[in-house]
Design a protein around this nucleic acid. Structure first.
Lengths: 252, 252
DNA sequence: CGCTTCATTGATCAATCTCAACTCGCGTGG
DNA sequence: CCACGCGAGTTGAGATTGATCAATGAAGCG
């Protein structure tokens, strides 16, 4: 499904059809594409046709890259990360197919964060100005934007509560449920499923929930020992959903 | 400047003139008022004329209240708070004059948070539907919204990094700088000022930065001992801005 | 005057970090 | 094909940060 044109730094130019994207009704991306088509103009978004593909661990963009470009993940998992000069890092959010890096990016460039690929990632970049114009031309697009924004803010607030007031166990369990929700939204997982592909390394989890990867290892080992969940071979297995949910939501 | 009509629960209906609001160009509120006037319709936003006033520690609204109403702070300090069933609480943000509780509220009701007055607070509530209509009628209002939203998101991301990856000292120092920035934006503090009115109790600080009020006390006492800053009698005094800034931003 | 909130302080405890060592699998270059 | 280095996960010992518990005093307020 992808036609590739390799370059020297691991980044490839690829063709990627939106019909394949699992985030069909979830986010801005599809709506933008649809609106662009229906607008009938020959090529309102010229960047739309070419997407890039990068290998795991590669940086997709740094903050300065976001001056004009608005990247959207087409396939794979990525993370938007804030790095402190002394090496500490915090993951603001994991990016799944269909996700904008941040909906704030539609309006303003700067953000002191970068985006890093976790799996092989293909992504597409729009030009802010074009996307913005399209946005104002199509009011239903604005609705779509509003709802992804509200969802983004809600997750943001949740994370603040988690980091500020919850224990390591709670944070990790909640992260897992959060990700599963988002995966099922996208059809990358069925509601009853007990296993999913799960490409996160423990250090990703650590950076997302504000812990050390050492401590994440201990908690996850403990989860496995207690028969709650296990992560092996890039696969998450739920062993006892109810008890795990109790860990995640007991104190609400 | 305010005409009052007291009721039994501490909430008062008051008149409040926007000309007094320190957040003149900062946020949505003014823009909305201006747009409503210039629209020339007799009373496009009927709620606009009446504002409420509540004493410190009173809850302005719970989540169910936000189903239809969109509150805006007119004067005083408030906090939007998430409470966990076991009593833990996390402050998502402090609300200053001109602040919407959350710009997401313009689009959707639910949020698992409540708003609590810190000082005497006067606020005004709009109806979501009316505000939304006005928003789509006036495109420049949308720009205003976009920029407050981007700022809101940026502060949100900052808080995530603070809670996830910074020490108690850093968090508290950064909170202070953050608040001072917002106060100067609103003209409630001059750039060179070394003292400000500062109504936060230590437990507010604790709930905002994810610590215990006991520990906040220890850190602040230490700041005072080291000649960095002091908080007495609802007043913040900066004793050594440079060193304090170093504590807040040393590791970025 | 008595109650509540707030701030402070000390002693002790618990959660998490730091450091270090070890294993395993994988890819690469000799 | 093998040695090597690297990234990843695990484990244990010990150090640190911040929480918990408890007592005290000051201030505000009905």
């Amino acid at each position: 499904m992808n036609a590739r044109a390799a370059s020297n730094d691991g980044t490839e130019l690829t063709q990627f059809s939106c019909g394949v994207c699992p985030a069909y009704q979830v986010n801005m991306c599809q709506a933008a594409a649809a609106a662009a088509w229906s607008a009938g103009r020959p090529a309102p978004l010229q960047l739309q046709q070419s997407t890039y593909s990068v290998p795991p661990r590669k940086i997709i963009c740094r903050e300065q890259d976001l001056y004009d470009a608005v990247p959207v993940i087409c396939s794979g998992w990525a993370a938007s990360i804030v790095m402190l000069p002394d090496g500490r890092r915090q993951i603001l959010s994991f990016l799944l197919p269909g996700d904008l890096v941040s909906s704030a990016l539609l309006f303003e460039p700067v953000k002191s964060c970068m985006v890093e690929a976790i799996t092989v990632v293909s992504y597409r970049t729009y030009r802010r100005a074009e996307l913005k114009a399209l946005l104002f031309a199509k009011p239903d697009l604005m609705d779509r934007l509003a709802s992804t924004w509200v969802a983004e803010k809600a997750r943001c607030d949740q994370l603040i509560v988690d980091l500020g007031r919850r224990t390591a166990e709670e944070r990790i369990a909640r992260l897992v449920f959060n990700l599963m929700d988002r995966l099922t939204q996208r059809g990358m997982m069925k509601p009853g499923d007990t296993t999913v592909e799960f490409p996160l390394r423990q250090h990703h989890i650590a950076d997302a929930v504000g812990l050390t990867s050492v401590h994440v290892s201990k908690v996850i080992t403990d989860f496995r020992r207690r028969g709650l969940m296990a992560i092996d071979d890039r696969e998450l297995r739920l062993l006892n959903v109810d008890d795990l949910r109790r860990v995640a939501f007991s104190r609400h």
